[in-house]
Simulated scan of single mutants.
Amino acid sequence: MLRREFLSVRNGLTADDVRTAADTLAVRALALPELAGARTVAAYVSVGTEPGTLPLLDALRGRGVRVLLPVLLPDNDLDWGVYAGEGSLARVQHGGRMALFEPAGERLGPGAVTAADAVLLPGLAVDTRGMRLGRGGGSYDRVLARLEEAGAHPALVVLLYDCEVVEHVPKEPHDRPVHAVVTPSGVRRFPGGARAARGM
């Protein structure tokens, strides 16, 4: 129900709304200390009316950052490939779900994400504790579990619209808070997510 509500608001956005927000999100995200020093960033290609990521991906790549993008596997886990520009993306239809844009090149394996200095997570909302509401497929729950198992501690950042930072979202025992949320109006950090203070 909650997911449907957030998706309904997003579906009311125009292409201009999405494009303008994407440009602003890129500027704000690029100023984050967590991304300023990153050599490898795991990200994703936004689709539809999701907060846009392409301007940010291109800017990171322009800085010489190695950008990893996910490839959805049949069991909903994620493999990874390197972003080599918008022309390197393939539109892939996964069953009856929306088509995703995935890197067309070499597959690096699900464990490649553990090398990332920062991970940009998709989401529908984040609450005041830093808990993220995803789409419900569980792909990024597996990513976060893999990072934990590997002892990897990248900065976890979510890009959202302003109205998607809310008081409370449901929390499952396996959920982990993110370090920061970037919206068109600014950046919000969360307790327990002081990545920048630890020298990143």
Results as ranks from 00 to 15, higher is better:
42 A>G: 15
42 A>W: 00
42 A>N: 04
42 A>D: 00
44 Y>Q: 09
44 Y>G: 01
44 Y>N: 04
44 Y>L: 09
45 V>I: 12
45 V>A: 15
46 S>T: 08
46 S>I: 06
47 V>G: 07
48 G>R: 10
48 G>D: 10
48 G>W: 10
49 T>P: 12
49 T>Q: 13
50 E>W: 07
51 P>H: 11
51 P>G: 13
51 P>T: 08
52 G>M: 00
52 G>W: 03
52 G>C: 02
52 G>T: 03
53 T>L: 06
53 T>K: 06
54 L>W: 08
54 L>P: 00
55 P>S: 07
55 P>V: 10
55 P>G: 04
55 P>Y: 05
56 L>M: 14
56 L>R: 10
56 L>W: 01
57 L>H: 00
57 L>E: 04
57 L>Y: 07
57 L>R: 03
58 D>H: 12
59 A>G: 14
59 A>I: 10
59 A>T: 11
59 A>S: 13
59 A>V: 11
60 L>V: 12
60 L>I: 08
61 R>A: 15
61 R>C: 09
61 R>D: 12
62 G>H: 11
62 G>P: 13
62 G>Q: 08
63 R>W: 00
63 R>N: 08
63 R>V: 06
64 G>L: 05
64 G>M: 15
64 G>Q: 13
64 G>W: 12
65 V>R: 05
65 V>Q: 03
65 V>W: 03
65 V>I: 13
66 R>V: 12
66 R>S: 12
66 R>W: 07
66 R>M: 05
67 V>H: 03
67 V>K: 02
67 V>Q: 02
67 V>M: 09
68 L>V: 00
68 L>W: 01
69 L>A: 01
69 L>W: 01
69 L>Y: 01
70 P>G: 08
70 P>A: 12
71 V>A: 09
71 V>E: 01
72 L>H: 06
72 L>G: 09
72 L>N: 07
72 L>R: 05
73 L>C: 02
74 P>V: 11
74 P>H: 03
75 D>A: 08
75 D>G: 07
75 D>Y: 01
76 N>F: 15
76 N>C: 11
76 N>I: 03
77 D>A: 15
77 D>W: 07
77 D>M: 11
77 D>C: 07
77 D>Q: 11
78 L>C: 14
78 L>V: 10
78 L>K: 12
78 L>I: 04
79 D>V: 12
79 D>I: 11
79 D>L: 09
79 D>N: 14
79 D>M: 11
80 W>N: 05
81 G>W: 13
81 G>M: 13
82 V>H: 08
82 V>Y: 04
82 V>R: 09
82 V>Q: 04
83 Y>Q: 11
84 A>H: 14
84 A>F: 07
84 A>D: 15
84 A>G: 13
